[in-house]
């Protein structure tokens, strides 16, 4: 268990960088979420009953929120 712990921590230390790496990683996570939302089948986004108007499209709002998060991490701090 001791050697597994040392191995895991050394793997993490190997990929650590400055805070720029953290911001890039978080932006990548939200970017991936946007891709997943775009590729999601209609029945999983509430569109199965017909095309909703843009303002009631839950998927569109979720993508917008994820985009705002990418901008926040890109611009702030």
């Amino acid at each position: 268990m001791n050697s597994i712990g040392i191995l895991c921590m050394s793997m993490i230390e190997a990929v650590q960088g400055g805070s720029w790496a953290g911001k890039a990683a978080v932006m990548a996570v939200f970017g991936l979420l946007i891709v997943v939302l775009l590729c999601m089948p209609a029945h999983m986004t509430g569109k199965a009953d017909g095309a909703p108007r843009w303002w009631s499209n839950v998927r569109l709002w979720a993508i917008g929120i994820a985009l705002v998060q990418i901008l926040v991490y890109a611009w702030w701090g």
Binding site: Q16, S19, G22, V26, W76, G77
Partner: peptide
């Protein structure tokens, strides 16, 4: 810093993520 560097004692960014 919105995400502190990896050697931050309390909130290193890999642990935050």
């Amino acid at each position: 810093d919105l995400l502190p560097p990896a050697d931050h004692p309390v909130f290193p960014w890999p642990a935050v993520l």
